[in-house]
Design a protein around this nucleic acid. Structure first.
Lengths: 229, 229
DNA sequence: CCAAAAGTGTTGGCTCTACACCCATGA
DNA sequence: TCATGGGTGTAGAGCCAACACTTTTGG
């Protein structure tokens, strides 16, 4: 009888002959009405001169989510970004150095500015539509992440992770338009968002050289699944 | 003899202190108009007396998909099931023996009977709605898999992986009804499936003590994304 | 001729899309 | 008073859900 997962294989005789486990984090934020992604330069090795998402090896007895949070903190100083597992990339040739299985995460933060100057020396923001050459298979990860983000915008309240506590309807609409890369009808959009009941209205207003805008916040800061577009 | 049944800190603190990588496969098939899942008994160790999905460690320089195919072949003899990565489970406590990060896959096959008698000694089919106690976090995997399958039934032609080359419309409808656990209106269903243009009509018929049924097959045996329910 | 499953259309309600003008404010 | 962005309603089209009877065969 074949039993499960008892370490019998020849590889296991020598302990190092196992794939390593890493996490990589595709961090998105909205800045200057652009969708941006945080990248770190690779200084040495076969893929130097390229950029990569923040990431690193998972430690023994560490949760995957914790490893992702730890690496994100290390590279950006962010402590409370939204995190979501995307996909696991395991092609042995994805990293020319050794066989690394990488669990890709998407991270979303409302304030890219919170990354301190010190942390900014470790990497920088790029406009998502104009990424530099990426190391490993990080181009695949970028594609996967943006597709997931687009999909979730349409059927969840995930936008709360990318907006500050208070924002105008126009800002919410711009966020959608930006990420989905299409124009959005203001009236239909407002009607649907209101029907979804995911916003609370704030007593405050945003003022400017024009009619003041009402401010809103998300009613819940946890992911809700609701058909909205 | 099992190596490293319990690999604990003294050794793990050093260079071998890395999580292992495994794959686990949630295999679904339709049999006797029930949705069934293949499980393997755990013979020994802390979780004996429980059942688990087929799976095992990923080898160095092996693709994740290849590892999943290999383990599926080992446990079931199936060579050409549909395979799709689901999610990666990495809680260090999920396996009491050691820290194993497991990449869960969903597998789908049209003919559960193809599993030979020899392979059936390694495990057996269970009705998905009546699973025995599962080892590790395989209950989570089962949930994740069925949710993914339900979702994909609604917006892809994934049903081709669970049906033989030719089938009647009633069989297709039963498959949907079975997995989605709800009744389906025959007329509306037929209209939508036809509108999606995913079927080719066969010249053959299925006969019985009643009006013969036209046979159909899927036009493409590759995954297509098309809104269909 | 009976039992059993296969096959087929229509209607009303609802949802979605397209579309343009007035409002409130600061300068 | 003007420039700027904020806020609002409606009508027509298309889509979807609900619903029941006739057909074809084998026994």
């Amino acid at each position: 009888v074949t039993t499960r997962r008892i370490d019998r294989s020849p590889e296991d005789a020598h302990e190092h002959a196992r794939p390593k486990v890493a996490v990589d984090i595709v961090l998105f934020a909205r800045e200057e009405n652009r969708l941006k992604t945080f990248l770190v330069p690779i200084a040495t090795g076969p893929v130097r001169e390229k950029w990569a998402f923040p990431g690193g090896l998972v430690r023994v007895n560490e949760l995957l989510d914790d490893a992702a949070r730890r690496e994100l903190l290390t590279f950006t100083g962010l402590r409370d970004a939204y995190l979501e597992q995307l996909f696991t990339f395991g092609d042995p040739s994805r990293d020319p150095n050794s066989h690394v299985v990488s669990v890709a995460y998407m991270a979303l933060t409302p304030d890219p500015k919170r990354i301190s100057a010190a942390d900014m020396t470790r990497g920088r923001w790029f406009e998502h539509s104009r990424l530099p050459p990426l190391a490993y298979d990080h181009g695949l990860m970028a594609d996967y992440a943006i597709r997931r983000l687009r999909a979730k915008l349409e059927y969840t309240n995930i936008a709360f992770t990318l907006l500050p506590d208070e924002f105008t309807f126009a800002e919410l609409e711009q966020l959608y338009s930006l990420i989905l890369e299409r124009e959005i009808d203001r009236r239909n959009f407002r009607r649907r968002i209101m029907a979804a009941k995911i916003l609370r209205q704030s007593p405050n207003q945003r003022r400017g050289p024009h009619r003041p805008a009402r401010l809103y916040g998300f009613a819940q800061h946890s992911l809700q699944t609701i058909e909205m577009l």
